[in-house]
Amino acid sequence: MPRTLFIDSTPDIDRVWKRVHGPADIPITVAMGPVSEEEVPGKVAGYDTVINDATYFSEPTLKRCTGLKHIVFLGTGAASFVDLAAAERLGIKVSTIGGYGDTTVAEHAMGLVFAAARHIATMHGIVRGGGWRPMQGMELRGKTLGVVGLGGIGREMARIAGGVGLKVIGYNRSPVSGGGVPIATIDELLAQSDIVSLHLALNEGTRGFLDRARLERTKPGVVIVNTARAGIVDEPALVELLRAGRIGHYATDVFGKEPPSPEEPLLTLDNVTLTAHAGYNTPEAAMTMYRRAIDLAAKGWSTP
């Protein structure tokens, strides 16, 4: 039986985890995070399987985890936290969990659309600070939402958006049935969309997908929503275009480094809405994800 460590739980996670992990399941040691990269090898020592929420496993770190055989990543974006190529070279299996929270993440993305369109977070901060500034926003009905990536979350986003009166168009990197969503090329989508919502997995084919050239093809004043991964967007170009007002607003749940450092440029901008990588975080989605993580850990690293 694999010896399994949940390396970086949190009090919020643990409350739900205890409802899922039962006496009939494999034993799993639960440690509280966050965990710095320097601490990882010591934490992992004696375990062959690690369940990972948000701990970084670079190639140097992986090389020091000599007994590690399997990382079960809580979510789909393992590439943001684990050097997948290095893990493969070292014979460390990396399992991911998808489809556990399509509705939950799409609802969060739509919440970011509303917040960005009506400057909710900005006005909240002003009012909390004793000020008063009624800000003019965007009425969503009749506007165009471009959904980039028509997997489970993207399709849910399209469904929710249609219900609030948005005109939805979609783009997918590979041929896919749009489920009633008109399909456009990426250039067509960027040119037509008042709001662009990103739902791509991060891999070598999508890293920097929204580069400077594509960002400059968007409609002036566009709102960009990112509940996928930060690496999909060329952040230096994005920040420059936000500062110039060419991009109207960036609402993101994801950062290149999480939590972001105090030097993160997005923290200095007014035309952003920022949340703490919580799009997946409801009890309903979390229970499904943790159940699958336990089952994957139980299967071990040798199962194809």
Rank of each mutant, 00 (worst) to 15 (best):
S174P: 12
F57C: 07
V233Y: 09
P175F: 03
L145T: 06
M287G: 14
P2T: 14
G165T: 06
R207I: 07
V35N: 02
I71C: 05
G170W: 11
T61R: 03
E156Y: 02
G33P: 05
G245H: 11
L189A: 04
P236V: 09
I92G: 01
M287E: 15
G180S: 12
W132S: 12
V254T: 13
I195D: 00
N52V: 12
M289L: 15
L242P: 06
M32Q: 15
A228W: 10
A86E: 02
T144C: 06
P23R: 13
G146P: 13
Y47D: 02
G165K: 04
R243A: 12
Y56H: 14
A117L: 01
F81Q: 01
F255D: 09
V127R: 03
P220L: 04
L200R: 06
R246L: 12
T303R: 08
A228H: 10
I51E: 05
P2R: 12
I195V: 14
P175D: 12
P34V: 05
V35H: 03
V168A: 04
D234C: 11
V82H: 08
R292H: 08
A86L: 07
L68C: 07
M123Y: 06
L166R: 10
A286N: 08
F209T: 08
V35F: 00
N226H: 09
G91S: 06
F114E: 00
G152A: 13
G130M: 08
I97D: 04
G111N: 02
E156C: 13
I92V: 15
V82Y: 02
A78S: 10
M1K: 12
P283L: 10
L84V: 12
E156A: 13
E107V: 06
R3T: 14
V272D: 11
L267M: 13
G146I: 12
D187L: 06
L112D: 03
R155G: 01
G154H: 10
L166A: 08
G180I: 06
G146D: 10
T122W: 02
A117I: 00
F73N: 04
Y56N: 10
A121W: 00
R64K: 15
D102H: 07
F255M: 14
P260K: 15
T288V: 14
I160T: 10
D211P: 04
T206A: 10
T49I: 11
R155K: 15
G205L: 07
I169F: 03
D194S: 01
I28G: 02
R214K: 13
R243C: 07
L112Y: 01
V82S: 01
K43L: 12
